[in-house]
Design a protein around this nucleic acid. Structure first.
Length: 177
DNA sequence: ATAGAGATTGCCT
DNA sequence: GGCAATCTCTATA
């Protein structure tokens, strides 16, 4: 379902971004996944109710946002890797002091959390709940028929698994393919 | 208790 | 292109 998230809107307060790049992580059989070692305290949410927000700290510096997604059993999550700023840009600029161009505002998993203001406060938010701090919205733009597919980024194991998806040609993606 | 690694970013050369 | 920043989790003792 990771590519199905492409072109959906990620909303926090008055800041809105359109998802242009995602990366899927599996359960206990995916050595690159936080769920690989079972439902540990951090990873337990990946084994729970789908459609919730999983936020974790990356390199002690950044927050990363995931959508919990899996079948009837098992575990998994989809990392949001990049969004295109759609609304609330005025609040995004001061949250991203290093960004000088609009395309750099949210073109990475840590960047988009900073731009939208997503942090541990939002951990576990029901992304489809109308009252949640962080929400996923469908404004009618369908996901791309043929998303760009490639290997996952920043991991040292199972790098051959082609579970990175993006909107073809979007200038807001995190890294060149 | 403690050590090592990490789904990244931005500044430096 | 190299590398530091800095927190959390997990494994080992």
């Amino acid at each position: 379902m990771a590519p199905e998230l492409l072109n959906l809107l990620l909303v926090r307060g008055d800041r809105v971004g359109r998802i242009v790049e995602v990366e899927a992580y599996g359960g206990e059989r995916d050595p690159a996944s936080h769920a690989f070692r079972g439902p540990t305290p951090r990873a337990a949410i990946m084994f729970g109710e789908v459609g919730r927000l999983y936020v974790y700290r990356s390199y002690g510096v950044h927050w990363c946002a995931n959508v919990v997604a899996h079948g009837d059993e098992g575990a998994g999550a989809v990392l949001i890797r990049a969004v295109e700023p759609v609304a609330g840009l005025a609040a995004m600029w001061p949250a991203r002091p290093a960004a000088r161009r609009e395309v750099d505002l949210a073109s990475g998993p840590g960047k988009l959390c900073a731009a939208l203001g997503i942090s541990a406060d939002d951990l576990g938010a029901d992304l489809l709940g109308p009252a949640s701090t962080v929400r996923l919205l469908d404004d009618g733009m369908a996901p791309p028929n043929e998303p760009t597919v490639g290997p996952r980024v920043g991991i040292s194991v199972a790098t051959e698994v082609p579970w990175r998806f993006s909107v073809p040609g979007s200038p807001h993606r995190s890294r060149p393919w």
